[in-house]
Design a protein around this nucleic acid. Sequence first.
DNA 1: TCACTCTACTTAACAGTGTTAAGTAGATCA
DNA 2: TGATCTACTTAACACTGTTAAGTAGAGTGA
Lengths: 206, 206
Amino acid sequence: MVKTGTLPAKDVRSAILTEATRLFKENGVDGISMRQIADAIGYSATTIYLHFTDKNHLMYAVCEAGFAEFGESLGAAASSTSDPLEQLRAVGRAYVEFGLTHPLHYDVMFIRPRAWAIGRLVDEIEGADRPEPESFVALITLVAVAMKSGALRSSDPREAAAILWSGMHGVVSLSISLGDQIDAFEPDEVRRRAATITEAILTELG
Amino acid sequence: MVKTGTLPAKDVRSAILTEATRLFKENGVDGISMRQIADAIGYSATTIYLHFTDKNHLMYAVCEAGFAEFGESLGAAASSTSDPLEQLRAVGRAYVEFGLTHPLHYDVMFIRPRAWAIGRLVDEIEGADRPEPESFVALITLVAVAMKSGALRSSDPREAAAILWSGMHGVVSLSISLGDQIDAFEPDEVRRRAATITEAILTELG
DNA sequence: TCACTCTACTTAACAGTGTTAAGTAGATCA
DNA sequence: TGATCTACTTAACACTGTTAAGTAGAGTGA
């Protein structure tokens, strides 16, 4: 028997996306099942496969806007000033802020990175050389500029970028992973801590 | 029908542990199934439940030695010198070294912390206030000593400890989570990077 | 109007997961 | 001999992602 007007058929895809997004926000990627989504919109689980090739593709679609926001937010931070060191500070702040406001996106990107999250969809990259995440490349470039301008003394932008990234990631990921088990990771503490580490690193490399 | 001499019955528990440990080293916690372990030792899956109350308890038993090694290694590092700053450096190196040599243990402890890994077994702590991980408490103490000795100027040992931890965790966890996707996280690079961040932080807080 | 095809959906099933309930073969003991 | 206890088994439950096959209904051409 075919669906009797529960939904205008054309909107099924977006109904799936809406519900999957809601469940993602509540429980994260691993807290969602295809049947759960299907039940919530009044369709069978297999219907989802008529609109998304598999769960990975669906989750990518759910997270896509968040991923874009990540890139845009870091880009805006880099553009917010022309002072190389200030750019690095602003990008660091934006990175941390994204992690604090989008912990579930941060998780799929950097804590337990899924293939579909870190380098486009699996089937789009299979066979191809795994490209470095754009944002890491962008950070390297930013650091290189800071070095050429004399604001940083070290001469290995890739290494300096990795150090800055590690510092921010440490603060954010510890807060996301252990925040509800140890009360030393409140958002404001995380921001302050990240700023301290950023200054420490910039001083050390400067 | 009862088992016919495949194993001296008394050794079943240790056979489970041996095989579970082997599979853990190969695939990590989530790459093991109870049936897989059972098949490997020639028993049915339910037999495992005669020796371990559930998968969590089994995994805890598998990881127990590694957890102990973590504590001992950090303790030894702290005892290796009496100079407060040197102690912090040594503990940092030991922490990073543990992560590099026991990535799967590090994962269950700090990257996607499981209840059974971070604060004893679930049923041992239920109801009780979740205690802070011993090693974090130990680090705070170490930092407090450094402050009293005047080696560090800042006056918040808890915050300073969190910063040091964040720094080390960032380097280690990024290496474990993304090491095989980005080739900027070779072990020696990780060690060097951790040392750089440690110096940066100690200088900033000094 | 009849038959065909195409679309959008369905149910049933597969292979896997952790876990529990119930059954059984063999040894031990009164 | 008969009862009990131990150590194991098979069958099952409720889940997971995913695929194969079936079906109701609309649209189309003769």
